[in-house]
Computed example of a mutant assay.
Amino acid sequence: MKYYRPRLQFGGWLLAILTAITATPAIAETANFGTFTLSANFQPAQGTVQGFTGGSYSLSATSNRDRDHKACIGFADPTPDHIMVLEKDFSQLTVQIDSSNNDTTLFIQGPDQTTIRCGDDTGKSKDASVGDRNWKKGIYRIWVGTFNPGVKRDYTLTVEQQ
């Protein structure tokens, strides 16, 4: 009986393909309005960025509750609006939206992809904010949404260190 080797050749090709895929560097993250980096004792201007809302993607489709069991609501673009890079751990940060009191929401995905922080109205203001503890070093994806889909609102996002 003759021994047939195509499986070994296929296995070799498969191994070569898998090796090439795992050796390929990850594609750089992109955001609608860019990336900003914060290090120890950052200046207020370094934590201030601008953008506008306007998507129909339901943020609750990614996660309907955050790590503190707050509801994640709103509509945004599927691509994050901002990428925030923390160069160190921060014990306390506040991320706040100023859209002239329009009804905005916040969805922040942590570096581990599973730590979610969500925010809606801030006090009597309809502008969203998230004030939280234990921000670990890494890359955060931030979506600024609106209560209704497809609504375009200009905003300023500010990150403050406490």
Rank of each mutant, 00 (worst) to 15 (best):
M1W: 10
Y3G: 01
Y4D: 11
Y4F: 13
G12D: 15
A16K: 09
L18K: 02
T19C: 11
T22C: 08
T24F: 15
T24L: 13
P25S: 03
A26S: 05
A26L: 15
I27T: 11
A31G: 01
F33A: 04
G34S: 13
T35N: 12
T35P: 07
F36M: 02
T37M: 14
T37K: 15
A40S: 14
A40V: 02
F42R: 00
P44L: 00
Q46R: 15
G47F: 11
V49W: 13
V49R: 13
G51F: 11
T53V: 01
T53L: 01
G55Q: 08
S58P: 07
L59S: 00
S63I: 02
N64E: 03
D66L: 03
R67M: 07
H69D: 15
I73Q: 07
G74F: 04
A76C: 01
A76H: 13
P78K: 05
P78A: 05
P78G: 05
I83M: 01
V85Y: 14
L86T: 13
L86I: 10
K88L: 05
D89H: 14
F90Y: 06
T94S: 04
T94I: 14
Q96M: 01
I97E: 04
I97T: 09
S99E: 04
S99H: 11
N101V: 07
N101F: 09
T104C: 08
T104G: 07
T105E: 08
L106G: 06
L106K: 03
L106I: 06
F107W: 01
I108M: 06
G110Q: 01
P111T: 09
D112Q: 01
T115D: 03
T115V: 06
R117P: 10
C118G: 04
G119V: 11
D120E: 10
T122N: 14
G123A: 13
G123P: 14
K126A: 01
K126I: 08
D127T: 08
S129D: 12
S129K: 08
D132Y: 04
D132F: 00
D132R: 03
R133F: 02
W135R: 02
W135T: 03
K137I: 06
K137G: 06
I139T: 15
Y140I: 09
I142S: 05
I142R: 03
I142H: 05
W143L: 08
P149N: 07
G150M: 03
T156C: 09
T156Q: 13
L157W: 03
T158W: 10
T158N: 07
T158F: 05
E160W: 08
E160V: 08
E160P: 02
Q161S: 05
Q162S: 12
